[in-house]
């Protein structure tokens, strides 16, 4: 009972804070503490969202397509890379530093290069998404593969299991938690990555739309699209959580 109450309060607190921020924001705009062209009021943002709804939907389709395609490739590559690094330590010592190095390069910096190399189509966007989603997957999975209890491996070997059997029966399930943690991050990165790539050129997508409204100083529409992008990321992350819940039923069994 108490626990239930606590849970409701836990959810109420952040909702109250968000509401408070919205109220302060709206008051600041209504009382003209901040000029309207610099900071649109929340109500205006909602209005802009409603008017632009159709256009946002069309553009989000392109962005989502790039994000999901890039994410899929990134996840698969991350998986294979992690698996190879796990099986062959020499590959790990060769590859790992390069992996870390690539992560220090900001995606905004390589996006123009990718456009230069791969032109204005979908390719540079997908490639950027692959680059940003690959790393959290590879690192997370490798960590998961290698954190297996060494006694478990001993036991499997004593049962004469081969490397492949040890991988599927022990290492892979052990890495699932890390896989989903990585996937949550990768999902958020992939949407942002796609939007960044679209800023720099292209014909459709939320990033293209964003640059267009920015150029015409329509800040209410700008805010609407920003919120929309973060909403998409949040929904995708929730979807990953749901997927995790159903693919790892043993994590939430109770009765003894």
């Amino acid at each position: 009972m108490n626990n239930k109450k606590g849970k409701i309060i836990d959810k109420l607190i952040p909702a109250a804070v968000i509401l408070l921020v919205l109220i302060v924001w709206q008051t600041a705009c209504s009382l003209k503490w901040v000029p309207g062209y610099m900071l649109p009021s929340p109500i205006n943002v909602v209005k802009a969202f409603v008017t632009d709804f159709h256009e946002l939907m069309i553009n989000s389709k392109a962005t989502l397509y790039e994000a999901v395609l890039g994410l899929t490739i990134g996840v698969l590559m991350g998986f294979f890379c992690a698996a190879i690094m796990d099986v062959l330590p020499s590959v790990k010592s060769a590859l790992y530093p390069i992996l870390v190095l690539t992560q220090t390069i900001p995606p905004v910096a390589i996006a123009p290069l990718l456009i230069l190399w791969f032109k204005y189509g979908i390719a540079p966007k997908v490639i950027l998404v692959v680059l940003v989603s690959f790393f959290p997957m590879a690192v997370g999975l490798l960590e998961g593969f290698q954190s297996v209890d060494s006694d478990m491996i001993k036991l499997m070997k004593s049962m004469k299991a081969n490397k492949w059997q040890i991988f599927w029966n022990v290492k892979f399930p052990n890495a699932l938690g890390a896989f989903f943690s990585g996937l949550k991050i990768a999902v958020a990165y992939s949407v942002v990555g796609a939007v960044i790539a679209e800023w720099l050129g292209g014909t459709e997508g939320l990033g293209v739309y964003m640059t267009r409204v920015k150029k015409s100083y329509q800040f209410d529409r700008m805010f609407a699209v920003i919120f929309f992008v973060s909403a998409i990321s949040l929904i995708l992350m929730e979807f990953v959580k749901l997927l995790q819940h159903y693919s790892m039923p043993w994590e939430h069994v109770k009765d003894k």
Binding site: D151, M152, L155, S158, P173, L176, W250
Partner: peptide
Amino acid sequence: YMLQKDLLLPN
């Protein structure tokens, strides 16, 4: 060989 821990696979 049965090791000290039960080592049952949680999944």
